[in-house]
């Protein structure tokens, strides 16, 4: 069976949409094939995903699993493909059924016990997700959800484990989207914990820095 998921790859500081296709078909021996210009971090993904699945109570398919990351010409170098690959294997092998898979992009690195690790570039990914037609939301590891939620126009769902992501996607549970707290965060965080009054006896230098700041960067 073939499963398709939406995720993102970072190119510099921009996130580019990537489709993860997972095809699970009967075979004599279990085998994983990963195609679509994966770099080292993604190649390691299949090992992490297998353990995370098993340790979350799912079954590793005894079949041939082909994972394709498209577009193929885009280099992919991040552990954030773990979650889409794991969910793709579960859907492709018929262990889960989900109507929500088409509406939510998924990103995140998995620990071997199936919990989620923070993802680099979650903010850029949310910015790209918000511009994509047909996407309602995005599943983001809890530690990275705050930065992603700053973006308007996309529901950011914080998930802390593979199990929780599965429960949400199969409709077993609902998750409230993270609120965009841009204004609050600004008020809370726009403070410096040091001040020029800490510097004594360098009034000439301070005067010059004032002129530098006033004249523009």
């Amino acid at each position: 069976m073939l499963a398709k998921l939406q995720t993102f790859s970072l190119l510099g500081i921009d996130a580019v949409p990537v489709e993860v296709e997972v095809d699970v078909s009967p075979a004599g021996l279990p085998k994983n094939v990963l195609v679509g210009l994966p770099e080292a971090a993604v190649k390691e993904s299949t090992h992490r995903v297998e353990r995370a699945m098993v340790n979350s109570g799912f079954v590793r398919p005894q079949s041939r699993v082909v994972i394709n990351l498209a577009p193929a010409d885009l280099p992919k170098d991040a552990a954030s493909f773990d979650l889409p690959i794991a969910l793709g294997i579960l859907a492709g092998s018929g262990q889960i059924e989900s109507d929500r898979l088409g509406q939510y992009a998924v990103v995140g690195e998995l620990a071997l016990d199936g919990t989620m690790r923070p993802t680099k570039g979650a903010l850029s990914m949310a910015m790209t997700a918000a511009k994509q037609d047909g996407l309602r939301g995005m599943l983001v590891p809890s530690p990275s959800a705050g930065e992603a939620a700053v973006v308007e126009g996309i529901d950011v769902m914080a998930v802390s484990s593979l199990t929780q992501a599965v429960s949400f996607l199969t409709g077993e549970i609902d998750i409230e989207p993270c609120p965009s707290r841009l204004d609050d965060l600004f008020r809370e965080l726009a403070v410096y914990d040091f001040d020029f009054s800490d510097v004594r006896g360098q009034e000439m230098a301070k005067r010059a820095l004032c002129v530098a700041a006033a004249g523009g960067p």
Binding site: L10, G12, I13, P118, K120, G121, A122, L123, S124, M127, S144, E147, V150, L182, F186, A190, Y192, F194, D195, F196, D198, V199, Q202, A205, K206, L209, C210, A212, A213, P217
Partner: peptide, 29 residues
């Protein structure tokens, strides 16, 4: 000490600038 305090006398970041800079920190973790 002086250099480190320079940001405290520059105009406040606006939300757009803040997101631009945050994005860079986010992509490198």
């Amino acid at each position: 000490m002086l250099a480190k305090r320079m940001p405290t006398i520059l105009p406040d970041l606006n939300p757009g600038e803040s997101i631009e800079t945050t994005r860079i920190y986010s992509t490198v973790g």
